[in-house]
Amino acid sequence: MQAAIEIDGLTKDYYLGFWRKRPRRALDGLTLTIEEGEVFGFLGPNGAGKTTTLKLLMGLIFPTSGGARILGRAIEDVSMHHDVGYLPEQPYFYDYLTARELLDYFARFFRLSAEERRRRIGSVLDLVGLSSAADVQLRRYSKGMLQRIGMAQAILHQPRVVFLDEPMSGLDPVGRREARDIILDLKRQGRTVFFSTHILPDAEMLCDRVAVLVGGKLQGVGSPEQIVSIEVESLEVLFELPAGSALPPALEDAATQTGARYRIQVPEAQLYDALEGLRAARARIISVSQLKPTLEDFFLRLVGGEQRKHAVEISGGGL
């Protein structure tokens, strides 16, 4: 099967300063291959180089070195865009147009008949939940609505590869769920989705594989489970104590009380000891759950180099 996206040593330097220009490397030798039909998550904290990568792939900026191919065609080849959709980060569109006019404008670049354009526009507006606001000028749109119209224009021409830069940003919970449904729907249709995010649960839920980028460098590629499982190291126990019963002395320091409930965090190895203590105190266990790290923790550690070893393992040692 042909690779959907082949990125080979993609590097981008920005030059800062007015008189004495100093280079700052935003992306450092990124090499990645994404197969057709994959939903691929591009993870990283702000400033990691995610948007730079997407802008390079879309030809909005030019690489300092390296290159990439999409569906076998070099990114410099404009015809490649016939099969590619793109949602920019924090999208902004012509505010003097209505949503329907904007989509019609964009659809005209694909030589679709008027009837076909009308049909597709109606269908994507429906899909992103903007049918009722289709004839409202975009200047009256909220940030979330702009994000939705951004998604609509990215998939309007039924591209084989869709690039989404932070597709969930600015969306409320309902909007995020709908965006996730759209991505899953694209996957069902066999399309390739490459999306950047700094929200780990989104990646966990949607992606076949994820890549982690920090400071312009690829830290690892793997399935979301691999990325997250590295970090599961403690558990949280939620419990209540009967009247007259006291906390076991060993847990006194670790416990926090909220109303009648207590909460403790224990390392996985000490879970049974803690549960024994709670049984002795006749505590009623409400839940025991894995404590997954926040993405922030995850990235902070990566930046600190602590996870470097794990990252190498995820990618099978092939960074």
Partner: peptide
């Protein structure tokens, strides 16, 4: 400046 060009240049447009 308004970044309206981003989505436009993602079309097959030189």
């Amino acid at each position: 400046d308004k970044r309206t060009l981003y989505a436009l240049l993602a079309r097959p447009l030189r």
